[in-house]
Amino acid sequence: MTYKAILNGKTLKGETTTEAVDAATAEKVFKQYANDNGVDGEWTYDDATKTFTVTE
């Protein structure tokens, strides 16, 4: 399944996708990606669109 992350960081804005077996696995991948890029904020998840959003 393909999951998407939308990054609304102070220094990084954009989107990325990952293939994962479930939302929990995708969330770990996206949170690591955000952390590696200095983005730390509030996370939300929309199951209907399989989209995570982080906003700083």
Results as ranks from 00 to 15, higher is better:
15 E>G: 06
4 K>E: 04
25 T>P: 01
55 T>E: 07
31 K>V: 07
29 V>L: 11
53 T>F: 13
16 T>N: 04
9 G>D: 02
22 D>P: 01
48 A>H: 09
12 L>P: 03
7 L>W: 15
41 G>K: 00
38 G>R: 06
34 A>E: 00
15 E>H: 09
33 Y>N: 02
26 A>M: 01
39 V>H: 03
4 K>M: 06
26 A>Y: 00
44 T>V: 11
4 K>I: 12
27 E>S: 06
32 Q>P: 01
46 D>E: 06
27 E>T: 03
4 K>F: 11
55 T>V: 09
34 A>P: 01
1 M>R: 13
2 T>C: 14
40 D>C: 13
18 T>L: 11
23 A>S: 10
13 K>G: 05
20 A>K: 03
8 N>E: 07
1 M>Q: 14
18 T>Q: 04
7 L>V: 10
53 T>D: 02
40 D>L: 12
37 N>S: 08
24 A>D: 10
17 T>C: 12
23 A>K: 14
44 T>W: 07
13 K>F: 09
35 N>I: 15
55 T>N: 10
50 K>E: 02
56 E>K: 03
53 T>A: 05
1 M>W: 13
26 A>C: 01
31 K>S: 04
49 T>V: 05
49 T>E: 06
18 T>V: 14
45 Y>R: 00
38 G>F: 06
5 A>F: 15
50 K>G: 05
15 E>L: 11
46 D>N: 10
10 K>P: 10
37 N>D: 02
38 G>S: 06
45 Y>D: 01
43 W>K: 00
21 V>P: 15
42 E>K: 10
55 T>S: 09
42 E>A: 10
12 L>T: 11
1 M>V: 13
46 D>Q: 03
48 A>E: 13
14 G>R: 12
2 T>S: 08
31 K>N: 03
1 M>F: 14
26 A>G: 00
4 K>P: 04
13 K>H: 11
25 T>D: 09
32 Q>T: 08
54 V>E: 02
28 K>P: 03
48 A>S: 11
44 T>F: 11
7 L>I: 15
29 V>I: 15
50 K>N: 08
23 A>G: 04
43 W>S: 01
13 K>P: 04
27 E>N: 04
37 N>F: 14
14 G>Q: 13
50 K>V: 03
15 E>P: 03
39 V>P: 02
41 G>F: 05
21 V>A: 12
32 Q>F: 05
7 L>P: 00
37 N>H: 15
2 T>D: 06
32 Q>N: 07
7 L>C: 07
25 T>C: 07
23 A>P: 11
8 N>P: 03
16 T>Q: 08
3 Y>E: 05
17 T>S: 11
51 T>V: 06
29 V>P: 00
18 T>G: 02
2 T>G: 06
20 A>I: 02
51 T>K: 02
14 G>Y: 14
7 L>E: 02
9 G>I: 07
7 L>K: 00
15 E>Y: 13
27 E>W: 15
49 T>H: 05
45 Y>M: 00
37 N>I: 14
28 K>Q: 11
39 V>Q: 03
2 T>W: 14
6 I>P: 02
6 I>T: 05
2 T>A: 07
1 M>I: 14
6 I>Q: 05
8 N>F: 10
44 T>D: 08
14 G>A: 14
12 L>R: 09
12 L>V: 14
24 A>S: 11
2 T>V: 14
27 E>I: 10
51 T>F: 02
32 Q>E: 10
36 D>V: 08
16 T>C: 15
52 F>A: 02
56 E>Q: 10
5 A>M: 15
48 A>Y: 10
13 K>D: 05
4 K>G: 03
17 T>G: 04
51 T>L: 04
33 Y>G: 00
50 K>P: 01
26 A>K: 00
15 E>T: 13
51 T>C: 02
32 Q>H: 06
30 F>A: 00
31 K>M: 09
42 E>L: 12
46 D>A: 03
56 E>R: 02
12 L>S: 08
16 T>Y: 15
14 G>E: 10
17 T>P: 01
49 T>Q: 06
6 I>D: 02
12 L>E: 05
52 F>Y: 05
12 L>Q: 07
29 V>M: 09
7 L>A: 02
4 K>T: 13
2 T>N: 08
31 K>A: 05
10 K>C: 15
17 T>Q: 10
3 Y>N: 04
11 T>K: 11
48 A>V: 12
15 E>D: 05
39 V>A: 04
27 E>V: 06
28 K>A: 13
34 A>V: 06
41 G>A: 04
1 M>T: 15
38 G>L: 06
28 K>C: 09
8 N>H: 09
56 E>A: 07
26 A>R: 00
32 Q>G: 06
49 T>W: 04
19 E>K: 12
17 T>V: 09
14 G>I: 15
19 E>C: 14
9 G>W: 06
52 F>D: 01
5 A>T: 04
54 V>T: 02
52 F>H: 00
41 G>E: 00
8 N>Q: 09
49 T>D: 04
16 T>V: 15
46 D>W: 02
47 D>F: 09
33 Y>H: 04
6 I>V: 10
2 T>R: 13
54 V>K: 01
33 Y>P: 01
49 T>S: 10
4 K>S: 06
35 N>Q: 15
19 E>A: 08
54 V>D: 01
26 A>S: 01
36 D>L: 11
48 A>G: 09
53 T>Q: 06
31 K>W: 07
17 T>I: 09
21 V>T: 11
54 V>C: 12
5 A>Y: 09
44 T>K: 09
25 T>N: 07
46 D>F: 04
16 T>M: 15
23 A>L: 09
41 G>N: 03
8 N>A: 07
6 I>G: 03
30 F>L: 06
11 T>M: 10
22 D>I: 01
54 V>Y: 07
35 N>Y: 15
9 G>S: 09
5 A>K: 02
50 K>D: 02
42 E>N: 10
53 T>C: 07
24 A>W: 10
54 V>S: 01
14 G>S: 12
3 Y>S: 05
14 G>K: 12
13 K>Q: 12
34 A>M: 08
34 A>Y: 06
